[in-house]
């Protein structure tokens, strides 16, 4: 009997939870705020689904009932992606080491 591809995806999912668990515990507490903003940005990879949905219309029909939701989702996800990565970058740029004593 063949294994359902769903099982493979489930395996990836479960293993990723463990990867996430160990990676996040190694994040230094002083960077927890950037951690939240960057996880926010990467979870907006949901834009992949939004793009597929937006381009699902037939030829000539750009805005069908289903693609309109895709376009709306693109805007939301794009706000998050740009906003999330840029604000993270802005924060990380502020973390500086002590200047060496002269």
């Amino acid at each position: 009997m063949e294994i359902d591809p769903f099982i493979f995806r489930l395996s990836i999912f479960i293993l990723s939870i463990f990867v996430g668990y160990y990676v996040v515990w190694s994040v230094t507490p002083s960077l927890h705020t950037p951690l939240m903003s960057v996880t926010n940005a990467i979870s907006s990879v949901i834009i992949v689904g939004a793009i597929i949905a937006a381009l699902s219309g037939n030829d000539g029909v750009v805005f069908s009932s289903s693609s309109i939701y895709g376009f709306l989702a693109i805007i939301l996800a794009a706000v998050n992606i740009f906003g999330g990565f840029l604000v993270t970058q802005r924060m990380l740029a502020m973390y500086k080491k002590k200047k060496k004593e002269k």
């Binding site: 990836i12 990723s16 939870i17 996430g20 668990y21 951690l35 990467i42 979870s43």
Partner: peptide, 10 residues
């Protein structure tokens, strides 16, 4: 899927 799991556990 990977991202969702990462963010979820984070």
């Amino acid at each position: 899927i990977i991202t969702g799991a990462l963010v979820g556990s984070s």
